[in-house]
């Protein structure tokens, strides 16, 4: 475990905690894309299939449980909670996310480290995570006044992947044979997708103005 990876995991944790607290405390999910949340729940479900069969460390197991629980709780809140569900911006969250799932599944079948069920699911989850933020970014472009917590959620979610890229660079130079093309390429694509969001987020933060994403 290196500092970049730990910082990345903590940043990822902060992003889901920020979102969960926002939804739980103000009972609102305005500006949050349910599709992105569903995609993330699917990412964790597909990636952590080895949760009970392959023990890496206590930290690893605990974090997997936290990410699984938080992502499914958020989806539950947005679908089932009588107050929160009414604040869901249904008419703007229209990204057809099943168009994302199928290509990622096909890619997982074609490009994986080993053609076993778990490995195909793992590769699928890596590709899916790379594009899972798209519905949320599209929704932000359509949302007039983006509330800070949602913007912070997206920012931390992007920041964690940037830190992971540093982690991969570090591990590449410190561990022999540490080569994971699938994670690396998908991780870089994922980070690039946040590119313009980061630009406008930092710009709004610097000029101390409300975050606006050009449509």
């Amino acid at each position: 475990m290196n500092l970049f990876r730990l910082a990345g995991d903590m940043t990822h944790l902060v992003s889901v905690v920020v979102l969960l607290l926002k939804i739980h405390t103000i009972k609102s999910c305005a500006g949050v894309s349910l599709k992105t949340q569903e995609l993330y729940a699917l990412v964790f479900a597909a990636r952590y299939l080895d949760l009970f069969v392959h023990f890496v460390s206590l930290y690893n197991t605990v974090m997997k449980l936290v990410f699984l629980a938080s992502s499914f709780t958020i989806v539950w809140y947005m679908r089932r909670h009588k107050i929160v569900r009414r604040t869901y911006d249904k008419e703007h969250d229209t990204f057809r996310h099943h168009f994302i799932v199928l290509p990622c599944l096909v890619l997982g079948l074609l490009l994986n480290e080993k053609f076993t069920f778990r490995e195909v699911m793992w590769a699928f989850s890596i590709y899916l995570e790379a594009v899972a933020i798209l519905p949320q970014l599209v929704l932000l472009q359509r949302t007039r006044n983006i509330d800070n917590l949602t913007a912070q959620y997206v920012f931390f979610l992007g920041a964690y992947r940037v830190l992971y890229i540093f982690n991969w660079i570090y591990r590449y130079f410190t561990e022999p044979h540490f080569v994971h093309w699938i994670s690396w390429i998908a991780g870089i694509v994922q980070t690039l997708l946040y590119g313009d969001f980061f630009y406008y987020y930092i710009l709004s933060w610097k000029n101390n103005v409300k975050l606006e994403l050009p449509a």
Binding site: R5, D9, H12, D50, H54, V56, S57, N60, M63, K64, F67, E113, K114, T116, R118, E119, W122, Y164, N167, S183
Partner: peptide
């Protein structure tokens, strides 16, 4: 190559 690939990252 071991049966399962070692994924030690989240």
């Amino acid at each position: 190559k071991s049966e399962t690939v070692e994924h030690d990252e989240l």
